[in-house]
């Protein structure tokens, strides 16, 4: 059963990839459409990685764009100045962001809840201001002339790797320790869980993937602007909205929310002003009536679908 479902999942994922390739070659999907699909993949990476920190470990971070920015700029600097191979740049972008995650995770040990939230927000803004003042990456003018190395296929593959890695992490003892820290830090400690270590670990892994997403992003758009909406707190809050609407602690929810909330604004381009009214209202309503998000910790998978067909009660596989 288990082998079979992963085989089927793999086949479906491959099919989607081939379908996109085919439609693109036929001219049915335009470059603009493929760009949106690639952005979907990048946002999936961002939201799922933020979910590890916020949803699974319960550390409220709203500075995810900071890690994203580090990956985006550092990798672009590497490819532009030193012409390093792209794969290497992705990994470097991820590792540098991961180191930043480590640096942010350490203070997280001493801060809780809302204080941590503000500190991470502040961290993100500091990163942005530093970039704004660094001429080597274009400073306030923005960073242009980045080679276009990111393809849809690469973004798609990275998104799949991210989802699989984080899902497996969450379903291992390491992930359970993170859940324990989220649920009750004192009880977790009394059971031998070093809560400090797991907070830092979650931040580091989450930041690594956010950095990778940044790399993909900068090498897709070929231009980075140090604005709040691209690498600042507006971006962080965008990611947070996707996470919350999809549901803290639900990977499936993150994936779906990332796709839906990337595509819908593109469809509703004429309503851009209303979007920023509807989102916050949605956010507040979800918190009032369904605070665990629309999918509320549930996971959707082929296995659970099969169980549903069998008439058995389907339930999340991590919780």
């Amino acid at each position: 059963m288990n082998k079979l479902t992963s085989l089927i999942s793999g086949a479906i994922l491959l099919f989607i990839y081939l379908l996109v390739q085919l439609l693109e070659r036929q001219g049915i999907l335009l470059a603009y459409h493929v760009q949106i699909l690639s952005l979907c993949c990048i946002n999936i990476i961002l939201v799922v990685s933020l979910n590890l920190i916020n949803g699974f470990t319960g550390q409220f971070s709203i500075g995810h764009a900071g890690f994203f920015a580090i990956g985006a700029y550092a990798s672009a600097y590497l490819t532009v100045t030193w012409q390093v191979p792209f794969i290497f740049a992705i990994i470097c972008g991820g590792i540098l962001a991961g180191i930043a995650g480590l640096a942010v995770g350490l203070p997280a040990l001493r801060l809780r809840g809302d204080y941590l939230a503000i500190a991470t927000l502040g961290f993100g803004e500091i990163i942005r201001v530093i970039i704004l003042n660094t001429d080597a990456v274009g400073g306030a003018r923005g960073f242009s002339g980045i080679p276009k190395y990111t393809t849809f296929g690469l973004a798609y593959l990275t998104a799949i790797i991210t989802v699989v890695v984080i899902r497996n992490f969450v379903n291992s003892d390491y992930g359970r320790a993170c859940l324990a820290v989220r649920e009750d830090e004192i009880a977790a400690e009394s059971l031998g869980v070093n809560s400090t270590y797991f907070k830092v670990l979650a931040f580091t892994i989450g930041a690594f993937f956010a950095g990778a997403a940044g790399t993909l992003f900068s090498h897709y758009l070929q231009y980075m602007a140090p604005t709040p909406s691209q690498i600042g707190f507006v971006k962080s809050i965008d990611i947070l909205i996707m996470l919350v609407l999809g549901g803290l602690g639900s990977i499936t929810g993150s994936v779906i929310a990332a796709i839906v909330l990337t595509v819908i604004p593109e469809l509703l381009r004429g309503f851009a002003e209303y979007r920023m009214i509807i989102y916050p209202i949605l956010l507040i309503l979800v918190m009032l009536y369904r605070p665990s998000g629309l999918l509320a910790g549930q996971e959707f998978s082929l296995a659970s679908l099969a169980q549903l067909f069998k008439g058995a009660k389907a339930h999340g596989n991590h919780s």
Binding site: S172, R176, A177, A187, G192, S319
Partner: peptide, 30 residues
């Protein structure tokens, strides 16, 4: 102080944490 949102089984499995031998990579690659 149980982990109220988790299953009983997961509550117990968490407590085996200190005896777990496998590495992070083992977990990620199953």
């Amino acid at each position: 102080r149980l982990f109220n949102n988790l299953t009983v089984l997961d509550n117990l499995r968490i407590a085996y944490h200190q005896n777990r031998q496998y590495s992070l990579l083992c977990g990620i690659f199953r």
